[in-house]
């Protein structure tokens, strides 16, 4: 179901004039996530570009309370905030959001997230995946995909595919897992509202593809177009896992059919970090995408949804 514009609240939890780059995908994701959760939100935020967004002086563009914490402790801090709200009896109307980048989720923040998921602490964990440590100068992370050039993989690009974080979080047995992209703001909005409905059911994990013009190497106006190409080529399927049950979101449903997917070269050739890739590398990407969709198809068949 597609939301009408009039059904979306006009109130913004974020104000204009932030410190982020022009064309930033993270900013769009942040804006829509906070819009969905509303003013009664507590955010915990590790070192990332979102910390830059929070401002350096006595002013901040964010209208919600944000707690800036260490890289490793984002989930632990969110768990603490959630426990405090529970003790005060306010856990029904105030939601805790842990807002981390891919470094704070895949690599450094992972033990905290894993521990909180295992304990069943009551908060939403959102990962804005821009596929490298963009804030510190584009270093390779666990989320960087195959072939991407970063400042720590400068010649051949990364030689490994990214971690499959959704599978890892699925293994933790979370009540709600979702994957979304900045090209579909309505989808971000709906998924955050849905995650809020799962209040009291442990950690809810949402992963958002956040495009990064300086890190990926593309003109700022192509920011949304590239995020959409990632969905259209099948590389980034929009999906949800509700109580363990896999549901493909409506924008991605048609890409189950391989012939309807766009060529992955369209997505890769638009970015300078993939400019050096050869035919053999494209083959690896195609195999990765085909394998992923084959897994999705098998699982849906097993569920009886296909």
């Amino acid at each position: 179901m597609v939301l009408k514009v009039s059904e979306i609240p006009e109130e913004e939890m974020m104000l204009s004039g932030t410190r982020l780059c022009s064309g930033c995908g993270l900013q769009l994701a942040y804006r829509w996530a906070l819009k969905a959760l509303g003013p009664k939100t507590i955010v915990t935020n590790p070192a990332s570009c979102s910390t830059v967004c929070g401002g350096v002086g006595g002013y901040t563009p964010l209208k919600v309370p944000v707690f800036y914490c260490c890289f490793e402790t984002v989930a632990a801090n969110a768990a603490g905030a959630a426990a405090a709200l529970k003790a005060k009896g306010q856990d029904k109307d105030i939601v805790v959001l842990a807002w981390a980048g891919d470094g704070g989720t895949y690599d450094i923040g992972f033990q905290g997230l894993s521990g909180a998921s295992e304990r069943g602490d009551n908060f939403i964990f959102a990962c804005v995946n821009n596929q490298a440590y963009m804030n510190t100068g584009i270093q390779r992370s666990g989320a960087t995909p195959y072939g991407a050039k970063t400042t720590t993989t400068p010649i051949l690009g990364k030689q490994q595919m990214n971690k499959n974080m959704l599978k890892i979080m699925e293994a933790h047995g979370l009540s709600y897992i979702a994957q979304t992209s900045t090209s579909h703001p309505r989808d971000i909005y709906e998924k955050f509202q849905k995650a809020r409905e799962f209040n009291g059911k442990g950690v809810r994990y949402i992963e958002i593809l956040g495009t990064c013009p300086p890190g990926w190497g593309f003109p700022t106006d192509k920011s949304i177009e590239l995020a959409r190409l990632a969905v259209q080529t099948g590389y980034w399927p929009l999906l949800e896992r509700i109580e363990g049950k896999l549901v493909i979101s409506s924008p991605s449903k048609r890409y189950m059919d391989k012939t309807k997917r766009k060529d992955i070269r369209e997505f890769l050739k638009g970015q300078s970090r993939f400019r050096h890739l050869k035919e053999a590398d494209f083959k690896i990407w195609e195999d990765y995408i085909d394998g992923m969709w084959e897994g999705i198809r098998l699982e849906l068949e097993k569920q009886g949804d296909l």
Binding site: L15, G17, Y59, T60, L62
Partner: peptide, 16 residues
């Protein structure tokens, strides 16, 4: 504590 304000980074229109 920080105060919410429009234009935290100054008039960012100057970047344009």
């Amino acid at each position: 504590m920080q105060t919410p304000a429009v234009g935290e980074a100054g008039n960012t229109g100057e970047w344009r």
